[in-house]
Design a protein around this nucleic acid. Structure first.
Length: 849
DNA sequence: GTAGGGTTAG
């Protein structure tokens, strides 16, 4: 942590506003001992201008009786000082001016005053001066208008600007190049691209500023392509770009995120012999960062000795965006030691960095600094960023205090709060805020949908997506990434196809992230062909894209293909991450590739420097257990350097079930920490193992234990989609409206299967009842209900797709195989672990799962 | 005298 920064941030002299701050009481308690002497002087500087105003007043007293000429002197002095106070003072003097006091030189003074107002960003005062000078009969000249118009532009006073434009034309100054240049700028800032361009085209002669205004205008109006192409036109036309032109065109390249183009434009700086300045360095660093050329950007930053505020802010914001929050704070450290005084943009990055690092202490220090310097006044962004920071640091109370104190809550303020509650996982508050919002935009919906997905409320996420459509909000790629994830988790191929077509029909921008989400979605929905098709068409693929396709292969049970893809990924120079290994190990496990799995696990740390997490150990336990190597799996667990969790023991247990090993099962169950927690997986599996071996007294013991702890078994449930409607069945469920037809069908299937030689495996019934009852219960497993319903509700040869919440039992597996043959239907069952594709009596898993 | 870089939420 940047301690010196903290010390400095906390030791600045407080102003009255700090006392009213919600955070301040805490901050005062936390602040290191104030040591003003150690703080950089810039930090202690007060507002400035107070002394100058005193000087102005003294001057006023001295010249008061000397006549009108001296008023000029006084106003010129005010303009020179240029603070709001001094300009107000000038206006007051100006107000008292009488017409006959105007003398030669007054026009010059008025122009200077308007110029000063424009510089200070005080458009209103500039207009006042202009109106007053007209009243007094001081006629403006061509020097009056550029600053007057630019003052209007700066404060977005477009109505007044249009009036000024009228005055310009009436008074005959429209032909002046300087005035025309300002008019171009004004029109572009109004959003009036066409008129701006027309003005440029009509100019009889142009200078570098004319070109630059046009290039800048296009770039800022989100037409960076036109901006860059105009730059080349300009060079072609023989006009010589200067450093301002370069800044504008570099900014346009940054917007395009086109590194090649950026480098080409960069080379002009040397070729045209343009002296590099601070503005240009900042623009270049920003451009290279936005184009992903981090090393080049960093080199330019490091080489620059005279680092100005914007350059620091640029590098800081990019560090934060790239997840390098510590580095961002190190930059702040350097600024506080030697550099320019941090401003509101600096603090926005500092707050973001605090939020990313969960550094509440530092965040509060930033809050204090912001209040002491009044940076939060008139700046909603700062307040919004602080809401975000406090929410991320777990201080929802402080976040709400800031939120409630804001007089001008924008949709962004609401969204920041909303996103904060999503991050804590507080679905109820999120929903309440969402309902309470006076206005919702695309981001609000995206936060809500993303939040529901995060909380595994996939159906609700889809429902919100539909609601969003009904309200006429057009989804973007961020929405679709969340929705695709929801579809993938629901495993509904119909929904997946629908959302995919929605994206194509609505021409929603595709990027690597979205394509990767689609690959993942189709992988999970049992359409690996589609996943591969999308993957192959991708222009750029990162580690997540490769991982998604590897996982798709793993889910399908295509271990060999998964390993092939991994090889290809390495050839293309993409480094695997820990998630990639989850996919690879799962793939090996599902395909019985024990040796390959062992080797991959070994290589994780040795070759790729990735320390295995619990989930990877779980995969290996699964790999060994499924292959029947239960002793080795147990030894492996015993040798783990980290504490095995419920999932590890659960995985071993379920292998014990498959391979009927009661001893190891009992051992594992007793080691599992879950028996003392309130989740149910392990006791259920254990009781199932005892049940399948007919050890009913043991079953009763485990069940009693569960009951005492208030646990209950999660009921098996399967869903299937028929004509776009999802039908849900739970085990033994008779509530479906078409239950009598389903029962009839179940009987028919049972007869046909019996004729085909199928004997129900009654060990799958985990209750102590007679065989007749067992047969009945077995025939009502949820996947069987779903299969039967789909068979009677869909046409011949239509595939049957079932999604199950638990692992499918061995009887249902055999059942599905035979149904696929007897009824000549392709059947897929996605259980909580993988896909099974049944066709002509065989399953894609090769009975290995 | 006109034109320029960095900005919060998904």
């Amino acid at each position: 942590m940047a301690l010196s920064s903290l010390a400095t941030l906390c030791s600045s002299p407080p102003v009255s506003a700090v006392r009213d701050s919600p955070a301040v009481s805490n901050l005062n308690g936390l602040s290191p001992v104030a040591d003003d002497a150690a703080a950089p002087s810039a930090f202690l500087r007060s507002g400035g201008g107070g002394g100058d105003l005193k000087e102005i007043k003294q001057l006023h007293c001295r010249v008061a009786k000397k006549g009108p000429t001296h008023n000029n002197e006084l106003i010129a002095k005010c303009a020179e000082v240029g603070t709001p106070e001094s300009l107000d003072y000038a206006l007051k003097v100006f107000e008292g001016w009488k017409e006959d006091e105007c003398v030669a030189g007054s026009l010059f003074v008025c122009n200077s005053l308007i110029r000063a107002c424009s510089f200070a960003g005080l458009g209103e005062r500039a207009i006042l001066v202009f109106v007053r000078m007209l009243e007094m009969g001081v006629m403006p000249d061509k020097y009056t208008f550029p600053f007057l118009l630019s003052a209007c532009t700066k404060v977005s006073w477009f109505r007044e600007g249009v009036q000024v434009h009228g005055a310009i034309v009436k008074m005959g100054f429209a032909g002046d190049m300087f005035v025309a240049n300002t008019l171009i700028h004004f029109h572009f800032e109004c959003g009036d691209v066409v008129d701006g361009r027309r003005l440029f085209d009509k100019m009889p002669e142009r200078n570098v500023v004319s070109w630059t205004s046009l290039i800048c205008g296009y770039s800022r109006r989100d037409c960076p392509k036109e901006a860059v192409s105009l730059f080349f036109d300009m060079v072609e036309a023989g006009a010589v770009p200067n450093s301002v032109t370069m800044v504008c065109v570099i900014a346009a390249c940054a917007k395009l995120q086109d590194l090649k183009l950026g480098e080409r434009v960069h080379s002009y700086i040397g070729n045209l012999d343009i002296e590099p300045n601070g503005h240009m360095v900042s623009a270049l660093v920003d451009m290279y960062m936005k184009c992903g050329a981090f090393v080049t950007a960093k080199r330019i930053f490091d080489c620059c000795v005279e680092r100005n505020l914007v350059l620091y802010n640029t590098i800081m914001s990019h560090y934060v965006k790239r997840g390098m929050a510590r580095e961002a704070l190190a930059v702040l450290d350097e600024m506080l030691e030697q550099g320019p005084q941090p401003d509101r943009v600096t603090m926005l990055s500092a707050i973001s960095a605090s939020a990313a690092l969960n550094e509440l202490f530092f965040g509060k220090a930033c809050h204090g600094y912001i209040l002491r310097n009044g940076l939060q006044e008139k700046d909603d962004n700062i307040n919004n960023a602080m809401i975000d920071m406090y929410m991320k640091c777990g201080e929802s109370g402080l976040a709400c205090t800031i939120f409630n104190s804001m007089s001008n809550k924008t949709v962004v303020s609401w969204n920041s709060l909303l996103a904060g509650y999503v991050k804590i996982g507080d679905v109820r508050s999120t929903r309440e805020i969402f309902d309470e919002m006076p206005e919702r935009d695309l981001v609000s919906w995206n936060i809500m949908i993303g939040g529901l997905v995060q909380e595994s409320l996939f159906e609700e996420a889809i429902e919100f997506f539909r609601m969003m459509q009904r309200e006429g909000i057009k989804a973007d790629k961020v929405t679709i990434v969340s929705v695709a994830s929801a579809c993938g988790n629901l495993g509904s191929l119909g929904l997946a196809k629908w959302i995919y077509h929605y994206t194509e029909e609505n021409v929603i921008e595709r990027d690597m992230l979205l394509d990767t989400a689609f690959v993942d979605m189709f992988g999970r929905c049992g359409d690996p062909k589609m996943a591969v098709q999308i993957f192959e068409k991708m222009e750029k693929r990162d580690v997540s894209s490769w991982t998604a396709i590897i996982c798709a292969m793993a889910t399908e049970g295509n271990g060999k293909q998964a390993l092939e893809l991994f090889k290809e990924m390495l050839t293309q120079g993409v480094e695997p991450d820990d998630v990639t290994f989850v996919g690879l190990l799962t793939a090996c496990s599902h395909s019985g590739l024990v040796e390959q799995g062992r080797r991959l696990f070994q290589s994780m740390e040795e070759v790729y420097g990735i320390s295995p997490k619990v989930v990877h150990y779980g995969c290996v336990v699964d790999l060994l257990g499924r292959a029947g190597l239960l002793e080795e799996a147990l030894d492996f667990i015993k040798s783990m350097p980290i504490e095995p969790n419920d999932i590890i023991w659960g995985s071993l247990l379920s292998s014990c079930r498959t391979h009927k090993n009661v001893e190891i099962a009992a051992y594992a169950a007793n080691r599992s920490p879950e028996l003392t927690s309130d989740r149910t997986g392990i006791p259920v599996v254990l009781s199932n193992i005892y049940a399948s071996e007919g050890k009913w007294s043991e079953v009763a013991k485990v069940r009693l234990k569960m009951k005492e702890r208030g646990m209950h078994k999660v009921p098996g449930s399967s869903s299937t989609e028929v004509n776009g409607v999802v039908h849900q069945f739970s085990s033994g469920d008779e509530s479906h409206p078409e239950m009598s037809r389903i029962a009839q069908m179940l009987d028919e299937i049972n007869c046909k299967l019996r004729d085909a030689g199928h004997v129900p495996d009654l060990r799958n019934v985990l209750l102590d009842v007679d065989d007749h009852e067992k047969k009945f219960l077995l025939s009502r497993h949820s996947e069987k209900l779903a299969i039967a319903y789909t068979l009677i509700s869909t046409g011949q040869k239509m595939p049957v797709r079932v999604v199950k919440n638990l692992r499918t039992c061995s009887d249902c597996h055999t059942y599905a195989k035979l149904v696929s043959k007897v009824y000549d239907r392709e059947i897929s069952i996605r259980d909580n672990n993988r896909f099974h594709f049944f066709k002509e009596g065989f399953c894609s898993c090769g009975d290995f799962w």
